[in-house]
Write a protein that binds this DNA or RNA. Structure first.
Lengths: 210, 210
DNA sequence: GTCTATATATTGATAGAC
DNA sequence: GTCTATCAATATATAGAC
């Protein structure tokens, strides 16, 4: 069989194996960051030997890069869905719901992103200053327009978006602290139900105009 | 001169040198976490040779431990100051202001804490489940009492505190992203002034009862 | 494709001259 | 107290047998 470039897997088996490795890499990178993670940890987590890992991915960097790229698309989607023609309160409420569901369903992706930002975003700074800024500029304009029309209480649209990011991602990134403070009594489903209700009240009540 | 134990510095010079090293260690640990940081980086940052660093601190662990301990006290103070006998809205507003000022003035301490939590809080989990939980339980009770008396809109007090933590610390931990989105136009002083105004509106408007 | 063995670099920490 | 030199452990990555 001819040598397969690790960047372009062809067979189903190869793709599957790369996914198993990526899954393990996500587990490790999201906890320790890029520099703090080792191939040994990833290999152990994946149940695959270290050289075999490097058969599918040319380097530690390549794994990390693919994880970051896969995550960024998913990360921008919820904001993209915010619709200028919808009801302002309903749109913001739905956006919060989507972001909170992502924190619940993809906490490791959130922590991977958090780690990347803490380290100064070396791999995605261009994306933040480019694609992300463009998207946020656009949505901030939509929100500002809603406010100008008197359909939302006036505040800074950018910082409003930051507040939504912060409050929702907190449940993924600071999960250990949230659990420690709430104690064992709070199962994950209950926790996110209460969080959802609280965040909805917080933002809707603050932004509603009577 | 007799051998000085590195844990109990005696002279002024020694204390000063330890502070320089600690300052450099904070710079590095807050960016890369414990495992991702190296003595080489810290030594370079401090302008002191690696063996000399280890003359003042017995190990990398010892530096990290002292940083975490120094930070935790400072971190709990703002919440402790919240006064059950004060005006509810004013107390919460003042708490947000204090937390935001800490994010502005001690961003590296915030990121050090964030890194520790992301890694599962291995060094402070006892503190979170002990001291922190006790403090939050107490203040949550105060807030719940205010709500019961009709002086604040009803919501979950714990999640309200989480929201305040999340929104304020966001400006320290995600500073790179905030700056990328806001662009170069936003100087730090202006940024925090707008943030302060927005967060005050968000929480006060949501919690105020007419 | 997967393994053992290993090359090469980096790391935390120590020894010992000055 | 501070340095150079260095050790032992660990890290990424490769070589080559099977």
């Amino acid at each position: 069989m001819k040598k397969t470039n690790s960047k372009t897997p062809t067979t189903r088996i190869q793709r599957q194996k790369r996914l198993v490795i990526l899954e393990a890499a996500l587990e490790v990178f999201s906890k320790h960051g890029f520099r703090g993670s080792t191939l040994d940890q990833i290999a152990s987590e994946a149940g695959i030997s270290k050289p075999n890992i490097l058969y599918y991915y040319a380097s530690k960097q390549e794994m990390h890069k693919e994880l970051i790229e896969r995550m960024m698309d998913k990360w921008l989607a919820p904001l993209e869905e915010m619709n200028a023609k919808g009801d302002p309160i309903a749109e913001i409420s739905a956006y919060i719901k989507r972001k909170l569901e992502m924190a619940r369903d993809y906490p490791r992706q959130s922590r991977l992103f958090n780690n990347e930002i803490l380290q100064g975003a070396p791999h995605i700074i261009d994306l933040l200053e480019g694609e992300l800024k463009i998207l946020v500029d656009e949505k901030a304009k939509v929100i500002a327009n809603w406010m100008k029309k008197g359909r939302l209480t006036k505040t800074d649209p950018y910082h409003l978006i930051f507040s939504i990011w912060a409050t929702t991602q907190h449940y993924a990134d600071f999960d250990v602290q949230v659990c420690a403070v709430l104690g064992e009594k709070s199962a994950i489903n209950h926790r996110f139900k209460v969080a959802q209700k609280h965040l909805d009240l917080l933002f809707v009540r603050a932004l509603e105009v009577e």
